[in-house]
């Protein structure tokens, strides 16, 4: 599939119905508040999977707007781009994963000091030490 003809590019404007009740926005924000308290008190991190919720059209945007934008934006490039944005509330991250075709494959609100995917895995650290050792031993440039 080519990436130059995506659904989102088709110029169809759908106006979200004015009377749609936002059933999910407030409860999700409450959940974030509880998660934030848990993070502060016990250090427990949480993740809310927005793609597992029956969100009405427009609700995703509403939640995003309510959370606002903070100071930190982390970009990942691993099997497609990912953007991890700090919201206006410290410790609350808006996590968006995309695949190599730039299609969103996961959308989460993560409540943690740093999003879990950012921290390197132990095995990767071990590999890193080995590789760097390798490089220093075999590279005689200097």
């Amino acid at each position: 599939m080519s990436t130059d003809a995506r659904l989102i590019d088709i110029p169809v404007i759908s106006e979200p119905a004015m009377t749609l009740p936002s059933m999910n926005v407030e409860p999700i924000l409450h959940e974030v508040r509880h998660a934030l308290r848990r993070l502060l008190e016990t250090g427990e991190t949480s993740m809310i999977d927005l793609r597992a919720m029956p969100l009405a059209p427009g609700e995703e945007e509403k939640i995003r707007t309510r959370l606002g934008t903070g100071e930190v934006v982390i970009q990942l490039d691993a099997m497609g781009p990912s953007t991890l944005t700090e919201t206006a509330y410290s410790g609350v991250w808006w996590v968006e994963h995309r695949n190599p075709n730039d299609v969103v494959t996961g959308l989460y609100i993560e409540v943690a000091k740093v999003p879990s995917i950012v921290e390197p895995d132990r095995q990767d650290l071990i590999d890193a030490v080995a590789r760097l050792n390798d490089d220093l031993e075999n590279n005689d440039d200097e």
Binding site: D49, A78, G80, T105, G106, D124
Partner: peptide, 23 residues
């Protein structure tokens, strides 16, 4: 050449699909 983080992303999408918690 798929990194561990890339693999984790793939697994997160799969977990989401199976209605499993993101963890």
């Amino acid at each position: 050449g798929v990194s561990r983080r890339g693999f984790l992303k793939f697994c997160a999408a799969t977990a989401s699909l199976m209605a499993l918690p993101p963890g």
